[in-house]
Simulated scan of single mutants.
Amino acid sequence: MDVRRVALGVIQARGRTVIDPALVAFGPDEADFLTRHVGKVRSVKDTTVRSRFRQGSTMPSLLDDFRTLDDQKFEESAKILQDALVAAMATSTNASDCVFAVVHTADQEGQLGYITLLKLDAVVEAARMSVATGKVTLQVLRELLPEPGKLQKAFSWPDVRAVSDAIIVDASSAKYFQAAFDVEVSPRSLEAEADLTRTILEQVPPERQHDALSKAVTLAGPLDEVLIELSTNGFPELEEAAREATESNQPAGIVRTNKVAAKPLIWRADGIEVRVPPTLMRNVEVVPDPEQQGWQIIVSTRTQPEMGV
Rank of each mutant, 00 (worst) to 15 (best):
residue 215 K to M: 14
residue 287 V to F: 06
residue 17 T to N: 12
residue 113 G to M: 09
residue 50 R to F: 04
residue 18 V to Y: 01
residue 171 A to E: 11
residue 34 L to D: 06
residue 18 V to M: 02
residue 97 D to K: 00
residue 182 D to G: 01
residue 308 G to A: 15
residue 262 A to Y: 04
residue 144 L to D: 02
residue 12 Q to W: 01
residue 120 L to V: 04
residue 252 A to M: 03
residue 78 A to K: 05
residue 119 K to M: 09
residue 79 K to T: 13
residue 277 P to A: 11
residue 96 S to F: 03
residue 258 N to R: 09
residue 209 Q to R: 15
residue 215 K to E: 07
residue 230 L to C: 07
residue 110 G to T: 06
residue 257 T to D: 09
residue 297 I to N: 06
residue 230 L to S: 08
residue 52 R to V: 04
residue 110 G to C: 09
residue 39 G to N: 13
residue 133 T to L: 14
residue 246 T to E: 05
residue 142 R to N: 12
residue 131 V to P: 13
residue 22 A to Y: 00
residue 117 L to W: 11
residue 44 V to C: 13
residue 163 V to M: 08
residue 178 Q to H: 09
residue 27 G to I: 04
residue 44 V to F: 08
residue 63 L to W: 06
residue 266 I to P: 02
residue 51 S to F: 02
residue 184 E to M: 08
residue 139 Q to C: 06
residue 69 L to S: 10
residue 181 F to K: 00
residue 255 V to E: 05
residue 307 M to K: 10
residue 251 P to T: 09
residue 262 A to I: 12
residue 181 F to D: 00
residue 287 V to S: 10
residue 259 K to T: 14
residue 94 N to S: 12
residue 167 I to F: 09
residue 199 T to G: 01
residue 28 P to D: 09
residue 93 T to F: 11
residue 170 D to F: 06
residue 266 I to G: 05
residue 14 R to P: 00
residue 191 E to Y: 01
residue 31 A to N: 04
residue 275 R to D: 01
residue 93 T to D: 12
residue 75 E to Y: 05
residue 136 V to C: 13
residue 186 S to H: 02
residue 134 G to K: 08
residue 155 F to T: 08
residue 211 D to K: 12
residue 256 R to H: 11
residue 53 F to Y: 11
residue 139 Q to R: 12
residue 183 V to W: 03
residue 225 E to L: 14
residue 136 V to E: 04
residue 225 E to G: 15
residue 299 V to M: 10
residue 243 R to T: 13
residue 112 L to F: 13
residue 276 V to C: 12
residue 183 V to L: 03
residue 145 L to V: 12
residue 24 V to R: 05
residue 188 R to N: 14
residue 97 D to Q: 03
residue 5 R to K: 15
residue 171 A to S: 14
residue 274 V to M: 02
residue 4 R to C: 08
residue 11 I to Y: 00
residue 22 A to N: 09
residue 160 V to W: 14
residue 193 E to G: 06
residue 54 R to M: 08
residue 171 A to W: 14
residue 95 A to L: 01
residue 253 G to M: 07
residue 100 F to P: 04
residue 34 L to M: 08
residue 271 G to M: 06
residue 193 E to Q: 15
residue 245 A to Y: 12
residue 105 T to C: 11
residue 145 L to S: 09
residue 224 D to N: 10
residue 112 L to W: 11
residue 309 V to D: 10
residue 11 I to K: 00
residue 56 G to Y: 01
residue 151 L to H: 02
residue 211 D to R: 08
residue 239 E to H: 14
residue 104 H to V: 07
residue 182 D to F: 12
residue 260 V to F: 02
residue 15 G to L: 00
residue 156 S to W: 01
residue 230 L to P: 00
residue 59 M to W: 04
residue 216 A to T: 08
residue 121 D to E: 15
residue 186 S to C: 02
residue 23 L to A: 04
residue 300 S to F: 03
residue 41 V to R: 12
residue 144 L to S: 10
residue 143 E to I: 13
residue 201 L to N: 03
residue 265 L to E: 01
residue 254 I to C: 07
residue 151 L to P: 02
residue 303 T to G: 11
residue 149 G to A: 10
residue 99 V to G: 07
residue 16 R to L: 00
residue 188 R to F: 07
residue 194 A to Q: 15
